[in-house]
Write a protein that binds this DNA or RNA. Sequence first.
RNA 1: GGCCCCGUAGCUCAAUUGAAUAGAGCAUUUGACUACGGAUCAAAAGGUUUCAGGUUUGAAUCCUGACGGGGUCACCA
Length: 598
Amino acid sequence: MNIVGQIKPLVAKAIKDLYGVEIPAEQLTVSNTKPEFEGDYTIVLFSLVKSMKKSPETLGKELGEKLLSTNSGFFSAYNVIKGFLNLTIVDQYWTSFLQDNYANPSFGKLPDNHQKVIVEYSSPNTNKPLHLGHLRNNFLGWSVAEILKETGHTVYKTTILNDRGIHICKSMVAWQLFADGATPESTGIKGDHFVGDYYVLFGTELKKQVEKAVAEGMTKDEAEKNAPIMQLAQQMLIDWEKGDPEVRNLWQKMNSWVYEGFNETYKKIGSDFDKSYFESDTYLLGKEFVTEGLEKAVFFKKEDGSVWIDLTDEGLDQKIVLRKDGTSVYITQDIGLADKKYEDFHYDQSLYVIADEQNYHMKVLELILHKLGKPYANGVYHLSYGLVELPSGRMKTREGNVVDADDIIEELKKVSRQKTEELGKVKDFNPGELNELYDTIALGALKFFLLRVDPKKRMVFNPEESIDFHGFTGPFVQYTHARIRSILRKAAAEENAVPEAKNISQQSPLLKLEKDLIVLLEQYTVVVSQAMTEHNPSVLAIYAFNLAKLFNAFYTEHSVMNAESPEKKLLRLHIAEMTANTIKSAMRLMGIGVPERM
RNA sequence: GGCCCCGUAGCUCAAUUGAAUAGAGCAUUUGACUACGGAUCAAAAGGUUUCAGGUUUGAAUCCUGACGGGGUCACCA
């Protein structure tokens, strides 16, 4: 039970004893006391004033007195300023909290709650390499999955590879036309980039053909439909669906190149999946539900034979679920896949990490599942995140204005190598250890950068300014961790570092920065559960940064190894150890490693 | 045009979900290196929270309207 959870019932009881009024403990507002006031936690009194018929000042005084006299082992002081009752918790509480938890590396982990959750994320198209926007998706999905695990859920990570369709045919056609048999092997280009280049090539060739046709008097729409290269792609899609062996072979070959590239990148960034679904397997799945929907009168058939759902009552439009030629559309496949996933995992919750441009689509999917009476419909949750934009606007592979995932990681690795060499603290590392360290720092910087912002919000990445290693960044937190570990190594090397100090619980009074740190450490469990309920890793990033910053302030002010007394030294070593552990845990939930030295 | 989201320091982001004087980082200026690791610390400066009304003891937060930005409304995926 965290401390706010302990304070609330005490206050509620005091109110009842004093005034005979029952206030549900959850309704009380308890917040951190602002640094400029004396105290640890603050009760906001305004909401109580009316029902108690007292002025805020009197109410605060009476409540403060009561709390202090009945819980003298818990509260040590109070003061009332305007409508705020500031309470101070006894030092003993904080020191014994520290004593109990400082050496527990899994502080904050919750026991199994028997909830099964699947997190679908990444889900790339197999016609182009990953860019910064995909990385946000990957980091977010991975992190949310780990946060769910940490809070007791059983989690399965899945992905759906969009491996068929007109966009894939485009890169295939371009390869046939322009590659002259070239392969990733023959060119030395990573497979996903290789295929992506032909997708871009298709776009430029199409543009040429369209411009020519428009100059000859065609409208742009017509020109695009009738462009020879587009017709080739359309024909190829038809051949693919028919199962034409030549097309299927080419398709398999090009996809395998892409997977090879993806796997390399996934390995580097730490993305992993318990199960991968392929759209080429699932795209026909939803059809049976069309029949079911018609029987249940959820769907209706138009004269031309196409099948629709009417969502105008929900403020949406009519949506097609089956074409007149009997083929399924995107939403139909998604119904089928949702069902397949339920069959495979029997989930309680199913998260979809998908960009917010699909909010409408996902809303429709949820509605349809509800209307079909699917038992899992309530568990479906769209974890919608905002796009990563450049200062010039959104990234588009077709237009070439993307920040490539592999490129940005390489760039950051260069920076981390340069800074590490400048600092010169790891000259004894061998090349393998160094490379691992540069990976940890570079990915730490990148993941932290993309996760530190509320996922729901759009964010801007400025390549000119690139990613900083100072301030509110991953490397800052990693660096703080390395420095703490350095102190702890030193202490461990000292024989009998603190012989005569056995117990820190008599450490009174705690200095301000000592207590501030313990108070912040105590809040870690609340932060993790907030990250879980909000599906929001940014609260962990902010927390880890604040913790690191506070520790840095603490230890420039107070010496650990040369503390005033053996007891203080032990206390500070415990604070240091728990800070390092907690930083490590929070960063781990974001997929970020923290080096012992850097 | 209908619906949805957003607008906070020069820039990138916070604000315990309605509470005290709206906080951080970057950039700018100043100070601290014979250092328990300077990828650090201490400090200064930077705000009419897009605008106009309203609700409330209290509004960046809730409501109405305006302005600005984005998304979506395909027999594409």
